[in-house]
Computed example of a mutant assay.
Amino acid sequence: MNRPIIDMDQIKQLKIQLTEFMMMYKFALDEMETRITILQEEFELLQDYSPIEHVKTRLKSPESIFNKVIRKNMKADLQQIKETINDIAGIRITCAFVSDIYKLEEMLRKQTDMEVLSVKDYIKKPKDNGYRSLHMIIRVPVYTSSKQGHICVEVQIRTIAMDFWASLEHKIFYKYERNVPVHLLEELTEASHSAAALDHKMEKLHLEMIEVKQQHSSEKNLSEIKLDQLRLNNETFKIPQKLIEQLQQLPDK
């Protein structure tokens, strides 16, 4: 039996194409992660609070992508894959409170050089198994030395309680190879309800904390506030008194 002739030049070209394909998704993730980090630092510097607790990125392997292509009965065409499969690059953002999720969604929508293609709100309408999270498909601009493109990134935003439940559910399904006993499925659903109740209670506490903080700030003596200092990158900078005086004389914008 004759073996097929291997065209090394063709294989090298295919490898370059696949590398460029995966590279663009990696860069799209880098871009999204940088934007999230900027939002996080902005809140920490200006408000002493950030709605973002944790950020985790994930890039599907070529094998995982190809398996999905087979399941969808698609051709192994990179352009078609780009247009059809939107979760090759993924980023998961964990927040402390449900209100933070929608606050972050709004901030991402305001970045007009990115395009929000779709939003699935599994918080207001959870999946049947109890899964809760906010999913966004965002088209992110990516620029390299030779080309530019717009790459889809799946963004999942959830609370710590939602993330804990989703992680537990994934481990159970993996352990039982998706054949999970009925009683465990029922307990998972009950746990989801408990997680939702916890989120609701934590949200209530969060609102009460905001009220207390605002009241404390209004009662705080001006002498206690260090108006001549600012902090960036864990460094304290002294603001010259003359600069403060000049800034005070500028008209309000």
Rank of each mutant, 00 (worst) to 15 (best):
T189P: 03
S218A: 10
P141I: 05
R132M: 12
K72L: 15
F164I: 13
Y174M: 13
K82I: 03
D30K: 11
Q17W: 08
V212I: 15
Y122W: 08
F237T: 04
T84Y: 01
S50P: 07
L18I: 13
L184H: 04
A196F: 12
F27H: 10
E169H: 09
Y49Q: 08
L39N: 01
H183I: 14
K110W: 01
E63H: 03
V180D: 07
T19P: 00
K56D: 13
L250N: 05
H193C: 13
N179T: 07
D30Q: 11
F66N: 05
I93A: 01
D128R: 08
L108M: 11
G130K: 02
I81F: 01
Q40V: 02
H170T: 08
H200E: 15
R178F: 06
K68Y: 03
C95K: 01
S145M: 12
D199A: 09
Q111R: 11
E53L: 12
I81M: 07
H150Q: 03
M74N: 04
L184T: 03
T37I: 02
T236E: 15
S118Q: 14
T34L: 14
E169K: 06
K75Q: 12
N2K: 05
D77C: 12
V180W: 06
E41V: 13
E224P: 04
D163G: 05
I172A: 01
L168Y: 09
R58K: 10
E245S: 08
Q79C: 06
Q215M: 03
H150C: 02
D163T: 08
L39Y: 02
R3M: 10
L134E: 03
K15I: 02
N67C: 00
F43S: 09
H193A: 13
F66Y: 12
K226M: 07
I137W: 10
I36K: 02
P126E: 06
M202Q: 14
P126A: 07
